[in-house]
């Protein structure tokens, strides 16, 4: 298991977990979010590392 911070909160994840698996775990539609890891935008196949700080950015606005 690895520990990552998601929007400031620690979360345990299986080692070799990706952003795609994280999105599924969080119940998020990948069309509505972006993932910024340690300050850098990352694609869905990015493999999360122990200690990564992840910002989940919602992209949907009210119009």
């Amino acid at each position: 298991m690895i520990t990552v911070k998601i929007n400031g909160e620690e979360r345990q994840m299986p080692a070799k977990g990706t952003i795609r698996t994280l999105a599924v775990d969080l119940g998020l539609n990948p069309e509505t979010v972006l993932f910024v890891v340690n300050g850098v935008l990352q694609p869905e196949d990015y493999r999360l590392q122990d200690g990564d700080e992840v910002e989940v950015v919602s992209v949907v606005s009210g119009g």
Partner: peptide, 12 residues
């Protein structure tokens, strides 16, 4: 462009 593409553009 989708909202996701525009948000990603703003971040990049």
């Amino acid at each position: 462009l989708t909202e996701r593409e525009i948000a990603a553009y703003a971040i990049v």
